[in-house]
Amino acid sequence: MDTPYGSAPLPVWERPEPQPRAAPVPLSRAKIAAAAIRLADADGLEGLSVRKIAKELGVGPMRLYDYVTNRSELLDLMVDAVYARIAEPGQDSAQESEWRATVLAIVHRTRAAALEHEWFADLLGARPHLGPHALAVGESTAAALGQAPGLHGVDDLQRALGALNAFIVGSLRREITERRTARATGTDVSAWQAALGPYLTRMLETGRYPTVARLVHDGAHLDAGETFHHTLTTILDGITGHPRT
């Protein structure tokens, strides 16, 4: 299919939907993505296959290839469907007085989406997300952050976005990994303390790790959501050079 940019095929988001068939089960890319998301939520990306999606939809596997040509396109559709939820409120403002609230809201919605769809965290940072809803989220974030005091020009904005995205990807992947590990092993804090507590006590009593000992003895068990928010606001303070009072 020729395009204004040469002979490269159009990406999945720009290709017209196939003409509807006279079939008992109507299909669309949105229905395929929704079915794939349900399966990935239940079994992870490893359990995702065209055969399973077709069975979920009650159609033959070959019908799906009229809508997506490969697994990569399927993942693109799934990711952009999640970004549609992140962008959903649609009232985010890039006014200078509201930039911070806008960034906080978008990032917290991203975390909520990753906790609901754990596979989404696996795809964050792995490849550019260029679907229309992903671009809308990127535009809202960049437009708001661009109004932050202390940022001057596109270079500052690029660096700020890089720092923010690095935090989002690293933090969410770590949180999701910890959740999966706890589920897989059945480990909770008390079980971990019973198993490794004696060893850790012996190591700390050597006196070689005084700062670690202070963290273990005096530090509180921090809530993941509160920690995420605190670190996010600290990053925004650092980006702008204007800590919030």
Results as ranks from 00 to 15, higher is better:
27 L>V: 02
33 A>W: 01
35 A>N: 14
36 A>Y: 04
39 L>S: 04
40 A>F: 08
40 A>N: 12
40 A>Y: 02
44 G>H: 04
44 G>I: 06
45 L>Q: 14
45 L>W: 04
46 E>F: 14
46 E>V: 12
47 G>S: 14
48 L>R: 06
51 R>V: 14
52 K>S: 11
52 K>W: 07
52 K>V: 08
54 A>W: 03
56 E>D: 06
57 L>D: 07
58 G>Q: 10
62 M>Y: 12
62 M>N: 09
62 M>F: 09
63 R>D: 08
64 L>V: 02
66 D>I: 03
66 D>Y: 07
68 V>D: 05
69 T>N: 01
70 N>D: 15
70 N>E: 10
71 R>Q: 12
71 R>G: 01
74 L>K: 03
75 L>Y: 09
76 D>Y: 00
76 D>T: 06
76 D>F: 00
78 M>A: 03
78 M>T: 11
79 V>Y: 01
79 V>T: 06
81 A>D: 09
84 A>D: 00
85 R>T: 15
86 I>A: 00
86 I>N: 01
87 A>D: 15
87 A>E: 00
88 E>W: 12
88 E>M: 14
89 P>M: 10
89 P>S: 02
90 G>N: 05
90 G>Q: 09
91 Q>E: 14
93 S>E: 03
95 Q>C: 14
96 E>Y: 11
96 E>Q: 14
97 S>W: 14
98 E>Y: 09
99 W>D: 02
100 R>C: 14
102 T>N: 05
103 V>E: 03
104 L>I: 15
105 A>S: 15
109 R>C: 00
110 T>W: 06
110 T>Q: 11
111 R>C: 07
113 A>V: 12
114 A>P: 01
114 A>M: 01
115 L>F: 15
115 L>Q: 15
116 E>A: 14
116 E>V: 09
118 E>P: 03
123 L>E: 15
124 L>N: 04
125 G>S: 05
125 G>V: 02
128 P>K: 01
128 P>N: 03
130 L>D: 08
130 L>K: 08
130 L>R: 02
130 L>M: 03
131 G>D: 07
131 G>E: 02
132 P>S: 06
133 H>M: 13
133 H>S: 10
134 A>P: 01
135 L>E: 11
137 V>F: 05
137 V>G: 04
139 E>L: 13
140 S>I: 02
143 A>I: 13
143 A>W: 11
143 A>R: 15
143 A>Q: 13
145 L>S: 07
146 G>P: 13
146 G>E: 13
146 G>C: 12
148 A>H: 06
148 A>Q: 12
148 A>S: 09
150 G>L: 15
151 L>N: 12
151 L>M: 12
152 H>N: 12
153 G>F: 03
153 G>K: 10
158 Q>F: 12
